[in-house]
Design a binder for these strands. Sequence first.
DNA 1: AATGAATGAGATTTCATTCAT
DNA 2: TATGAATGAAATCTCATTCAT
Lengths: 203, 203, 203, 203
Amino acid sequence: MSKEYSPKEKAIYEAVIELLEEGADLNNLTVAEITGKAGIGKGTAYEYFSNKEEMIAKALFYNSESFCRQLYKGVCKEKNLHDKVDYMMRKIEQEVPKAKCLLRLMNMLSDNTEISRRLQELFKEVFCAKEGIVEFVRNILEDEFRDGKTPSKDEMEYLVLDIYSKIICWVMVLNESKYEDITRRNSMRALILDGICREVRTI
Amino acid sequence: MSKEYSPKEKAIYEAVIELLEEGADLNNLTVAEITGKAGIGKGTAYEYFSNKEEMIAKALFYNSESFCRQLYKGVCKEKNLHDKVDYMMRKIEQEVPKAKCLLRLMNMLSDNTEISRRLQELFKEVFCAKEGIVEFVRNILEDEFRDGKTPSKDEMEYLVLDIYSKIICWVMVLNESKYEDITRRNSMRALILDGICREVRTI
Amino acid sequence: MSKEYSPKEKAIYEAVIELLEEGADLNNLTVAEITGKAGIGKGTAYEYFSNKEEMIAKALFYNSESFCRQLYKGVCKEKNLHDKVDYMMRKIEQEVPKAKCLLRLMNMLSDNTEISRRLQELFKEVFCAKEGIVEFVRNILEDEFRDGKTPSKDEMEYLVLDIYSKIICWVMVLNESKYEDITRRNSMRALILDGICREVRTI
Amino acid sequence: MSKEYSPKEKAIYEAVIELLEEGADLNNLTVAEITGKAGIGKGTAYEYFSNKEEMIAKALFYNSESFCRQLYKGVCKEKNLHDKVDYMMRKIEQEVPKAKCLLRLMNMLSDNTEISRRLQELFKEVFCAKEGIVEFVRNILEDEFRDGKTPSKDEMEYLVLDIYSKIICWVMVLNESKYEDITRRNSMRALILDGICREVRTI
DNA sequence: AATGAATGAGATTTCATTCAT
DNA sequence: TATGAATGAAATCTCATTCAT
């Protein structure tokens, strides 16, 4: 189903992600750092990618896509909006680094870097309406409104945006040290989840 | 009250912002570009800033701060939450480039760049609880709850986050071409505004 | 008589010449290009040649030698200087690419490249007084002076040089677009041929 | 009259020529070598030239042009063809390195290198019919035929080519060790010179 | 105080050559 | 024997920063 990656490609992808998790600055990553971490020669990377930007963009894309796919699978098993969003939030909580990577990707999409341009290309080429947080949220909402009252197009857009933004907030919360405390985190999760459900109900 | 800036400093700040508005990539800006745009010598910039990152970080900070200050002044004149948020959203709509700059600053705050480190220092040093969108939102909410029922600390945090995230969304919306259509924009503004008020009311 | 070449060796030689004819720059040819054109593996080339320079030098040498041999055969059949030189010039005209290759070889002989060093070695090792334009011209002249007045050693050197340089000119002429016109080319060929004969006669 | 060169530019030009005289291979010269020889920083070279090829091409051009200009001045003072050509040949003899540089330039003009492309551009931009050996020879011939019988266009072309090629031969002769012997060199010079005059007379 | 020419460290990228298969 | 994936040395070029003017 999903494209097969050569071991060297995967090594590059994972090296970039590890570096990101170690707190590296994606905009000033060097090819030497990446290939060093990946355990391959500098020249080898250029057998698989045509330049540094492609390496980094594809690495972000690869990881985000695989995380989104995971999320999607889990979400499909849940019955209603509440459980779906709850699943998502807990999954994100379990896999903060992957969620962080997704967040970084989304920030990068708009920073005018060469990397951002590559990312946009990747999204144009590969994207299939099933991955990507926004499309993802839209799917969940469409399921919810399958039968019963349907909101207007504008209201739908608003809801997508609202849920999307709350999930982003959730990722930001998870990165704040004050939410390392489990009870506070639980409490915040519940508030966000309730907020989302309330919005969908009342619109 | 606010620090005085020398003309050369301001020239640098404005040059950075102009470059940003022209679509430059802040992570690959060169000192030559900045000083060229500012109309001063490269060496001169180093009389006022100790390195490139400081120039960019301070430029973002300067502009965001001044935009926030403007927002704050306007918001103070409004009576209730609805009008305050409405004012904010319309102001942002009028000044997309400045809002964009603020958005960029916020993205940068978490990208581990040297610039991000400088920005964090600036916020530590200079921040005075009045500027910055988050603190800003908190102020508005505290005003709103001055008399009457006060939400719990957690609920308060949630509301801050919710409003903050919706404002970010608003900026993102304004950058999407499909919202160049005025009626759609108006409709979305109303939905977001109502959403915020509803959240505050029902919590 | 002539050394036998393995098919892979010949493939390399011909690949280099084809690339040269396609307008490649011999100094920046890559092994990948050569072996790609030759249709063999990169490693294989190193079974036959010890490095890139050897490949190119031998390829030039191979082609020049074979062209010279052809010329020599044809020239031997002619009786007198006029017919010999005429044959040569017409042959060169028919096979401009091969002549060009010879010209390139001669230029390279003096450009201090690693390739030029290899070429010089080849000429030292292999050269057998029968190939190579200079030696070639000398032979023709010696035939001419076999019986009758012999010029002094210096005069002989001068004549070799004169004929040699006129042949080089002929190759240059053939590469100029203004001599694509047949009548002009014929006229120039006649002038050069007459010039050569006159010099030999009058010295 | 002639363009002014900045000291750094001239330093680069002279460095390239010195390296050439020391037997360097122009196709594999490195920027580090050039700037090292020139006694300037690597980056400095890029303030004046946009890439390595430009440095080398302009260096060859600069030197050849100045040598041609010298030749031209001297030649103008001579009255007839014999003396003009004699002057040229003796001048070349005195300044073998400069002549060699000119020879190298002429070889390079046709080697499909990036350098060759730059050289061709330079000739297109700057050339003014007074420099360059070919144009140079044409001028001398036109002077010679000013009054008296004029040869046909084709004959004229032939003569230009013949003289040009003999001068090239002269440079090649000067690089051969067997002509380090003065009497042989004198003898060869006389033969070439006579040959040229004879050709012009008899055509 | 202001400048911008000069610098060289450091980044990306290429490619000849090796060597395991 | 033939291959081409892997390598890393080495090259070009950029650009933040300095410093003489």
